[in-house]
Design a protein around this nucleic acid. Sequence first.
DNA 1: TATTGTTATACTCTATAACTATA
DNA 2: TATAGTTATAGAGTATAACAATA
Lengths: 157, 157
Amino acid sequence: MASATSTGKPVSTLDSHLGFWLRYVSNYVSACFEKSVEAAGVSISEWVALRTLYSKTDSTPADLMCELGMTKGAISKILASLEKKELLRRETSLVDRRAQQISLTRKAKNLVPKLAALADQNDEKFFGHMSPQQRMDLIAIMQEITCVHGLKEIPVK
Amino acid sequence: MASATSTGKPVSTLDSHLGFWLRYVSNYVSACFEKSVEAAGVSISEWVALRTLYSKTDSTPADLMCELGMTKGAISKILASLEKKELLRRETSLVDRRAQQISLTRKAKNLVPKLAALADQNDEKFFGHMSPQQRMDLIAIMQEITCVHGLKEIPVK
DNA sequence: TATTGTTATACTCTATAACTATA
DNA sequence: TATAGTTATAGAGTATAACAATA
């Protein structure tokens, strides 16, 4: 697993790190999911934005900025792309004319459940061989790491 | 956790998927590691290439292509960058003058153990609160997923 | 013809920062 | 002045494909 240096200390291998394995598996799982939502016409970032807006109506770009952990420039581009696909509308807020109110179109409201089903299927594909308990345990472990390190935003990167 | 559609089916949330959590944690862990190796002057892809070459001397770009799961164009750029940093040499193979023999410089051989230590530290930082048994179990779970799905190359992406 | 590696090109995703308009 | 959002620019990382040299 590890070779030795002249000082006798072992040089750890790539695969001795849990971080390596998480990234290894995660990249495959995400790449596969990306492919499946792309067939539905959206990117992963767009899916995350859509699913967030589906639950939280009347969000502003600033809200999304916080929730997705991205810069306002990046959010602006995602929203422009979704608007172009007729999945959302942006209207100037009546309260503060600098701000925007985002709302999903009917098309988007019909699409989100389908995308959620794709996410379910993707999870089944990769983790379906594990017991429900094992999967819940794993989620709990990931959540614990999130807590321990104070991670906050949804990482779209 | 999930809202209901007009047909009564629940629309799963982002955080109900194990894939979401793996990506969430993995992105943070990798981003942190990236930052730490960048301070040492290399990217994650370059670290992976260096660590691979450290164990497997006399590799060719074609070998790396398979092992890192990247195209030859990408490998070529990584090798050019590492050569520019004086971390490796590329010499025409005596056997087949189309191929190259890659060898690490002394500078690289001194650097790799330091980078490996950074990887160790990164793992400690994020998973140090878990028991050795729990960490080994997690790695085993990731390896099992790898096996079940026939994943092969080291994902550098 | 097939293979090894390089290079030109393009694309995706994101950040930074200058900018516009409101407040 | 400060804030919300847009846009221009840049950079990282990778893929595709045309290319040169060699087999």
